[in-house]
Amino acid sequence: MTDESSNASGERRRPAGSVRHPAEHSAANEPPPSGQTLAAAQVTGQGLSRRDWLKGGARGVGLLGFGAAAGFLGTRESKAATRWQIDPNQCIQCGRCATACVLEVSAVKCVHSFSMCGYCKLCTGYFEPEPINLDEGAENQLCPTGALQRKFIEDPYYEYSINKDLCVGCGKCVKGCNMFGNGSLYLQVSHDRCVNCNICAIARECPAQAFRQVPVTKPYLLRGKGAAGK
């Protein structure tokens, strides 16, 4: 016995699960159902075998997984490619860097461009506007945490450096330096502390829009000799 049988009119009947070849429709002057294609026929269940179903399912799951992985890694990749940083030419030293960061002590720190510094005896970033004496007494220092430190080089020059562990990123010394000096003190996000939030809390509050994302390959916006093009 063949796997095809004939009906009373002589037409052959197909076994369940088999699919008619489209050419057979034509040969038998029997157009395929409106809009129905071979693939459609396959998925309507008229002729879907378990193996086909499993094959299709596995393919679908694979594609879904591929898409998910691409979506996840794609966004991860773009995030990892940038870091938050402060443009020192936009910064207005409003003090929000010290309070808005998600870290307990802000990741924003004062940095110093030695190539721009005048090594002044009377540094307006270091001293109160009217210091009692030009010495290291706490009452003369501008920085409320004592993070800016002073070292004698030769008369009348002094070198100033920042103790990052003490700096809270308030920008008080930066303001003093910008207003009267060369602007060699400025604020930067310290990447050894920053957790690189997707939306930086300080950037969200920065009134000067000084925060921007920079390439991870160039994560600092420096002044002086380290600056771009210098």
Binding site: L64, A68, L73, T75
Partner: peptide, 15 residues
């Protein structure tokens, strides 16, 4: 469609 759906779910997971 399936890949797009996967991508969206990946994006959501990432967020």
């Amino acid at each position: 469609g399936v890949v797009g759906l996967g991508g969206l779910s990946g994006l959501g997971l990432s967020r």
